[in-house]
Design a protein around this nucleic acid. Structure first.
Lengths: 107, 107
DNA sequence: ATTTAACATCGTAATATTGCAATATTAAAA
DNA sequence: TTTTAATATTGCAATATTACGATGTTAAAT
């Protein structure tokens, strides 16, 4: 098939998996790491920095935006992409909650 | 293309992305949650519990094993799949390290 | 008004993932 | 030893993802 059977899982499980999934590509990890080390973040820098075509970078940025991790602000003819601090922290808490509520009493 | 250009990223970026990727499927999230709430964990339970075919569950278990999160012990004609506590904790630390080292000084 | 620069979107090819039926494999039970 | 039960593996169809060239779009610069 190739299609994930989302309907058999809880919303929480689907949401959590979606977050992990978006983070599950080295380009997106690299983008987050790079942006976090800049003060100003312009997409064109990323194309040179990461080494993927402009269209590809743009797609990855879109996915990071889809889970609210990035804010994009128009700045002249450039875009200023920034990490959404609140979302970032909330995401970290969300993932830790998953790790902590999963008990380890097995075997 | 469809092929991730792993060679342009660091090993750390690829590894981290791989971990996120394995966790990025609701069935695998559900499996971890279910196993963690059991004392004994037998794959056949999972088939009924999760609602995917036995072959599919077996595949997902294999992926979780691939990042060391699950231990599989043969127990008669059943398998006892358990969360690897050390790996679990290490993984949580690894993800937190990613979140914490990513500075939030942008914009 | 044209040009240029910086993205975004579309279309498409290549590859990966998901899911399952069918078929091994393995070990206990009969 | 045959059967049964539990799980793994294989093969394949359907769908998703990745990547990029080509083409929009928008706003500053000329």
């Amino acid at each position: 098939m190739g299609i994930t059977k989302s309907q058999i899982f809880t919303e929480q499980q689907n949401d959590l998996a979606q977050l992990f999934k978006v983070l599950g590509h080295p380009a997106r990890v690299a983008i987050l790491q790079y942006i976090s080390n800049q003060n100003a973040c312009i997409c064109n820098d990323l194309v040179e920095e990461i080494g993927l075509a402009q269209a590809t970078i743009s797609q990855h940025l879109k996915e990071l935006k889809s889970i609210g991790l990035l804010n994009g602000e128009v700045e002249g003819k450039s875009m200023c992409y920034c990490i959404n601090i609140e979302r970032w922290t909330a995401l970290q808490k969300q993932l830790n909650a998953f790790f902590n509520t999963t008990k380890l009493n097995c075997c």
